[in-house]
Design a protein around this nucleic acid. Structure first.
Length: 120
DNA sequence: AAGGTGACAGGGT
DNA sequence: TACCCTGCCACCT
């Protein structure tokens, strides 16, 4: 019997999961950043590592502001997965986000949690 | 088949 | 404050 079950984390294999990650990522406001953990927390599926895994495949999809996702310390841990090692920092700079030593400055104020959507 | 490797995070020291 | 250790879970040797 093929019909397996949802609800479980095994659902991560579905493209549906990838899409959810992309959707949330696209909700991150211009000039703000979020984290792998915050997205995983909001989705309630998988772990922060899974979010990174999903984003790793985001390059095949349409424009996804993956550069706005950093780790909890504000470090650009995914920069090496972009076309060039500096592209992630450049994109953030265009949005007015200051990056020093591969770390987002003023992370506390720029951090955005998907839960804030409900406050609109 | 089993162990190593990540675009991570949180708690302990 | 900073570093280390452990949990996490799918993918790749």
């Amino acid at each position: 019997m093929p019909t397996k079950k949802p609800e479980t984390n095994k659902d991560l294999k579905s493209d549906h999961y990838f899409q959810k990650v992309y959707d949330v990522t696209c909700l991150i406001p211009y000039g703000r950043v979020s984290t792998y953990g915050a997205i995983a927390d909001f989705l309630g599926l998988g772990s922060a590592r899974m979010v990174g895994w999903a984003l790793n495949h985001s390059h095949t999809q349409a424009h996804i502001p993956a550069h706005r996702v950093v780790n909890r310390k504000g470090e650009l841990s995914g920069r090496l997965h972009f076309a060039t090692p500096t592209l992630m920092e450049e994109k953030l700079a265009l949005e007015g986000i200051e990056v020093v030593e591969n770390k987002v400055k003023n992370m506390d104020n720029l951090f955005w949690h998907p839960r804030e959507i409900e406050e609109y």
